[in-house]
């Protein structure tokens, strides 16, 4: 009996490379749009969390706690299987963008909130004492400093988001993991399929993670 990594299985994979390429491109698109959504939601809800208005704080907490404390798979299932019962049919690509976007938006909201709160109160006071308004102080003084602190954890979120797009495979998401799965469940060549897929995710995530490491070291030096 041939082993899981027999040569002919690799040849079959190379023959069908376009299947993996298609999934890879879908994963990149999904990640890019998902990350854009996550950043938008994260910055908005993160700033709500730093507000002194109780209602804003509450909105931040509800979003963050609800999303962070339920599995991404269930959120995706809700979007894919649940919403149609309410008459909302979303294309699976949109389900993917919404799913990972909303999910990681909650984590990014916490990153942003922590970043803003890590800027000493004296910075806001100095800005106020010079005649800045709240928003002027935020834009020119507080957020630029919060940004520097937030970059490394934000990059980690981007890495996690890319990996988590693989959850879409469970609803035939058309991305890399789905294609790898469906290709290999036809011919049972799981070994090469998953190794190559893993390497493709690595090729996206590792540069990002190293970038985060570099940023972190740079921050240590400058502070």
């Amino acid at each position: 009996m041939p082993g899981p990594f027999a040569g002919f299985k690799w040849l079959a994979l190379i023959n069908d490379w376009s299947v993996f390429a298609e999934g890879f491109v879908q994963t990149i698109l999904l990640s890019a749009l998902g990350l854009t959504l996550a950043l938008g939601l994260g910055i908005f809800f993160g700033l709500l969390g730093t507000s002194h208005v109780k209602l804003f704080k509450l909105l931040n907490r509800v979003y963050v706690e609800f999303i962070q404390n339920t599995p991404l798979v269930i959120q995706i299932f809700f979007l894919y299987h649940g919403l149609p019962h309410l008459g909302i049919m979303l294309p699976v690509f949109v389900v993917g963008v919404l799913g990972v976007g909303v999910y990681h938006g909650a984590y990014i909201a916490e990153v942003i909130r922590a970043g803003v709160e890590s800027v000493p109160r004296g910075q806001l006071e100095a800005a106020y004492s010079q005649g800045f308004s709240y928003w002027g102080a935020m834009i020119h003084i507080v957020l630029p400093q919060a940004k520097r602190i937030s970059y490394p954890p934000l990059t980690n979120q981007a890495v996690n988001l890319i990996k988590n797009t693989s959850v879409l495979a469970m609803v035939a998401g058309g991305e890399l993991m789905y294609h790898a799965d469906s290709w290999s469940s036809n011919n049972l060549y799981y070994g090469p399929s998953y190794v190559v897929t893993g390497l493709l995710y690595l090729s996206l995530c590792f540069p990002l993670a190293s970038f985060a490491k570099r940023m972190e070291r740079k921050l240590e030096v400058s502070s």
Binding site: G122, A126, S129, I141
Partner: peptide, 13 residues
């Protein structure tokens, strides 16, 4: 009305 603080509060960036 300018203020000078105990902790300086210069803008570090």
């Amino acid at each position: 009305v300018a203020m000078v603080f105990q902790q300086f509060n210069l803008y570090p960036h």
